[in-house]
Amino acid sequence: MIEAAMIWNEPNNKSHWDPEIDPDWSLFATMAKAACQAIRSVHPTLPRVLGGISPIDPSFIENLSGKGVLEHLDVVAVHGFPLDWNLWQIGEWPAKIEEIRAVTSLPIWVSEVGVSSFGAEEVQAWGLKRSAELLVGQTPRIHWYSLYDLPRAWGATTRHREAEGSSYYRHFYMGLLREDGTPKPALEEFGYHTPAVGLCQWFHFEDPRLDDAVAWMRRLGVRYLRTGLSWADSFRPNALAWFDRQMEALAEFDVTVTFCFTPEHRGIAPHHTSPPLVEAEFAEFCASMIQRYAR
């Protein structure tokens, strides 16, 4: 069921880790090493992956390497959205991967790549085709983000939300399926690239789209999936029941499970981007989830 454990999501992105509390990522390094060690203690062979970095920044990898983090990892991952948020062109994908290869010998996964349909759905379809042409064969894992558009009522996980202008609203149009579940033109294109290209789909707590998502992934021939189990959600009532249902539904896929999101009451600051008060608590959560779900 679980093929890999990913430590956090976009740790060098202010929307996911607070650099004001941890300006040199020392607290992140301590937390990540503790989580990797805890996972290894309960599953000695499960690959441990650094949460996909965004932006793609080799100096960030060098920083973590200097703090000893990479010694505890088996894979590093990157995220790229050159048609929406990055300051580089889509044709630079191979060069961006080479920038990371230059600073680490670990395998490199593309755990999120995507194109929004914010401007035009035809642009998304073209961007998917071009991304696959550039990435297939360059990296052992490619996770397209995402299957579903983000419902507008849920809100995107960003730092400044609507103040970000069109950059914020693009978050709601990354899916191959519209919010109402109807296909976009890119869905057919995606089917030409499976199983070499997998999916990244985040499921919210008690997400009503779960069963339909599984049906679509079967239909599309998806083999690899990246999703998350939220440390913050683990404190909700009936959290384990939801986690069990989610992971059972996804059992037929090779799942990279991402552990992230600090509970407000367990952070240095009351926010999901905060370093934890006690890094061992995050490590214990990771280990308990692996022990429960990794065969």
Rank of each mutant, 00 (worst) to 15 (best):
I268R: 10
G181A: 04
G198D: 03
H16T: 09
K129E: 15
H72A: 09
H272G: 02
E92V: 09
H160I: 15
G127C: 12
L83F: 03
G155L: 14
D212F: 03
I56L: 04
I7D: 03
S234V: 13
M217G: 04
T227C: 12
E188L: 10
R266G: 02
E20A: 14
T262N: 08
P275C: 10
F282A: 13
G114F: 13
V69Y: 00
F282K: 10
E98P: 02
K184E: 03
Q138C: 09
K67L: 15
P55V: 14
H43V: 10
H160N: 12
S146D: 11
M289S: 01
C36Y: 03
L70E: 08
E189Q: 14
R209W: 09
G127K: 05
I108P: 12
K184C: 09
I7Y: 01
R130T: 10
W8I: 06
G80W: 02
E179C: 02
A77L: 08
Q201R: 01
A186H: 10
L135D: 08
R141A: 07
E264W: 04
S116D: 11
P275K: 10
C260K: 01
W154D: 11
G191F: 08
L220H: 09
R101Q: 13
V197I: 11
V115E: 07
L187P: 15
Y168S: 02
L70I: 04
W216C: 07
A132Y: 00
T104L: 12
W93H: 09
E264I: 14
D244A: 10
M31Y: 01
G119R: 13
I97V: 08
M289K: 08
T30R: 12
W109T: 04
L277R: 12
A29H: 06
N63S: 14
D22G: 13
T158V: 15
P11M: 12
D207Y: 05
W25I: 03
W126L: 14
V42L: 05
W216Q: 08
Q138S: 11
D149N: 14
A77I: 05
N238Y: 04
T258Y: 02
E206I: 03
L83V: 11
A32E: 11
V115R: 10
E179S: 01
G68A: 12
L64G: 03
D211Y: 05
C200Y: 03
K67I: 08
A35G: 04
H193S: 04
E92H: 11
A239T: 11
I7G: 04
L106W: 00
F259N: 02
I39M: 13
A29F: 04
A95P: 00
D84F: 00
K129F: 00
T157Q: 15
I7W: 00
V222R: 05
S59I: 07
I97A: 04
A196P: 00
V113Q: 12
E162Q: 12
R245E: 10
A232T: 14
E133N: 07
D24A: 12
V113L: 08
L106K: 07
G68Q: 06
E188Q: 13
A269S: 05
G52W: 05
A163M: 15
E99Q: 09
G66D: 06
E248F: 02
A102Y: 01
R170I: 15
G175E: 00
A163S: 14
E206Q: 12
Y293I: 01
P82T: 07
R141V: 08
S131E: 03
